[in-house]
Design a protein around this nucleic acid. Sequence first.
DNA 1: TGCCCATTCAAACAAATGTTTAATACAATT
DNA 2: AATTGTATTAAACATTTGTTTGAATGGGCA
Lengths: 223, 223
Amino acid sequence: MATHELSTSGASSTGKSSEDRETRARLLYAAARLFAERGYARVTVRDICKKARANVAAVNYHFGGKDGLYRAVMRHAMETMQATTEAAREAGRDLPAADRIRAYVSVFAERLLGVHHETWIHQLMLRELSDPTPALTMVAEEVLKPRMVYLSSAIAELLHCAPDDPKVLRCALSVTSQFNSLLWTKGVAKLLDAEDGVPGSVDEIAEHIAQFSLGGMSGVKSR
Amino acid sequence: MATHELSTSGASSTGKSSEDRETRARLLYAAARLFAERGYARVTVRDICKKARANVAAVNYHFGGKDGLYRAVMRHAMETMQATTEAAREAGRDLPAADRIRAYVSVFAERLLGVHHETWIHQLMLRELSDPTPALTMVAEEVLKPRMVYLSSAIAELLHCAPDDPKVLRCALSVTSQFNSLLWTKGVAKLLDAEDGVPGSVDEIAEHIAQFSLGGMSGVKSR
DNA sequence: TGCCCATTCAAACAAATGTTTAATACAATT
DNA sequence: AATTGTATTAAACATTTGTTTGAATGGGCA
C-alpha cells in the first residue's frame, strides 16, 4: 500500500525523455478522465490501463497502486484549481467589490465551460465533494477554503457587514452552488429539455450568474 | 438479472403481517440509507444484509438482485419527491409569482433539512444526478421535469417573458442549485469553517434562499 | 561485448462481491 | 398427519478486481 509512496516524479533519474514517462503520463491522463467521468469506485485499473494502452501492472509500478494514482490525479487537479483561484483573484485586483465578483464569476465560467480548459478537473472536484474520499480534507483546506475566504471578503464588502457574518457564508454558497449546477446539468439538462446543458454561450452564462448573484446579494442586503 | 422482476409487492399472497415482510422492509430501509450515504458502487449486498440483520441471499430472494433493490429504493424515493413537488405546488396555490417561489423554497428547505423528513431521499437523488445510473432517465422525466415546469412558470411570470425563454431555465437552475449545495455542504462545510452545514435554522436558510433568488431574478430582469 | 538499470509484459494470486443452490423451518391448508 | 408453499440459512460458485511475481526487453555505459 505504501511501498512506492514518493513516486510522483517517478523514474526521473535518467532522462529518457522520449518513451520514459510516456506511459506514466498516459496513465495519468486516462485515469483523470475516467475518474472524473465515473468516480473512483466505478473505474477499474484494467479500464485505465486499457485506455492508456499500458499493462495492468503499470499502475502499481508507477504509482504504487490505484490509490496512489488517484492521489496523483488529485494533486494535478488541485494545482489547476489553485491556479484558477489565483487567476480570479488577479482579474479582480484593485476593483470594487461588485466588479471583483463579476471577475470571479467570469474566470470560473470560462474555466468550467471553455473549450480550452480541462473541464474534467472540475468534474472530478465536484465528485470529490459529493462522494468524499480521504483526499477531501486536503482539498477542502487547500482549495475550497482560500476560495471561500476570497469570495467572502468581496461579499462582506458588498453587504456592509463582517466577513464572518452568517449571511456572508450563505451568500458565498449561493454563488458557488450555481457553478456546481453547471457541471452536473451537463448530463441531465438534455434529459429535461435543453439540448446541451445550460442554454447560452459561456459569456451569456457568466453574465447570468453575475447578474443573478449580485441581484441576490442586493436582495439579501435589503431585507 | 431479470428473473424476479415484479417482486415489488414481494410475497404478499398470504398476509403474515408479523414477520413476513419484515426482512423485506428492513432490507429496503438499510439499503436506502447506505445507498444515500455511499452510493451504489460503494455498498455491497453484504453490507446491506448485515445492517438489516438478514441473510446474504435475502436480497436476491426479495428483489431479484442488487439492481432490483436499488430500483425499489429509487421508486420509494421518487414517490416522496413527487409528493414534495405537489406540496410545494399546493402551498403556492392562487398566490402571486413571488409568493409561489417563496412557498416553493420554504417547502423544499423544510423537506431537505427538517428533522421530521427523510433527508436521505434527497441525498440519494442528488447522488443519482452526479453519478447517473440507468434510473436517471426515469427520475428526470417523472420528478425533475414537472418540478422545473412548475418553477419555470412562476419565474416566467416574474420576469415577464415566455416560459421557454433561456433566461427562465437559467434562473430555475440558479434557484434549484442552491438546494443541491445544501446537501453536499453538510459533509464539507464543517471542514471549511461552519460548524454544521449552512449556518442558521431551517427558516433562516429558507429565508435566505428566497431573498437571494428573488433578488437574483430581479437583477436578471433589469439588465 | 557484457553488465546494469528501468521498464514492460503475461501470468497468477488472493480477496471481495453478486449470485445460486440445496437443505431446513414454519405456518397454513387439506 | 400429510402436504404445500414461502421464508430463511449456510455453503459454495463464478467473476471481478487490485496486486504481485518473475521473466523478458532494450537502451546506456564501462
